[in-house]
Amino acid sequence: MSQHVQQGAPEQAIDHAAAAERYLAAWNATDEGERKAAIAAAFTEEATYTDPLVEVAGHDGLAAAIAGARQQFPGFVFRPLGAVDGHHDIARFGWELVAPDGSAPVAGFDVVRLAGDGRIRAVSGFLDRVPAM
């Protein structure tokens, strides 16, 4: 079996932390127009998003998923939880959903694959803490 090992720095460095910031900005967008712009800035047109509750693709699918979360948790804000870890075109980061009273009933961990322009092309999301339903 042959292996291809590439050494050295990639041709174009990807800013993993900036990608995570744009991602959270999209999830925090409360207005439809703001959300549309934030999604375009954070995700490629054909991006996929999969977590235990939803599987969507494209900007329209992402907008619907985010709008659903905003509707379910009005007034809540997504914030980063810990540092962003990344290499090559992959990043992982934690987040929590913070209520107006400061509690954080929902938390998760996402792994994203990035396009060359730094936008997200795929998300695999995991829920670590969810409220009892």
Rank of each mutant, 00 (worst) to 15 (best):
A40R: 01
Q72E: 08
D51P: 04
A42H: 05
G75K: 04
D51Q: 09
P10A: 13
A18H: 06
A65N: 15
Q72R: 14
E55V: 06
T44Y: 10
A57C: 09
W27D: 02
A13F: 14
N28Q: 10
E11K: 08
I39P: 08
A9Q: 12
H4T: 12
I14F: 04
A37M: 10
A63E: 03
A57Q: 15
P10Q: 15
A29T: 01
Y23D: 12
A29Y: 10
A47H: 00
Y23N: 10
G33I: 05
D31S: 05
A9G: 04
A37V: 01
E55L: 02
T44V: 14
E45L: 05
L53V: 13
Q7V: 10
A17E: 12
V56K: 13
G75F: 07
W27R: 12
E45W: 10
V54C: 09
A18V: 00
Y49K: 01
D51K: 12
T48D: 05
F43I: 03
A41Y: 05
A17I: 04
G58M: 07
G75S: 13
A57L: 09
L53W: 06
E55F: 06
A40C: 00
I14M: 12
A19H: 08
W27I: 01
A17H: 03
H16A: 02
A69Y: 08
T48Y: 02
T48P: 06
A63S: 04
R70I: 10
K36F: 09
L24M: 08
A41V: 01
E21V: 11
E46H: 04
G58P: 04
L24N: 04
I66Y: 11
H16K: 07
P10Y: 03
L53G: 10
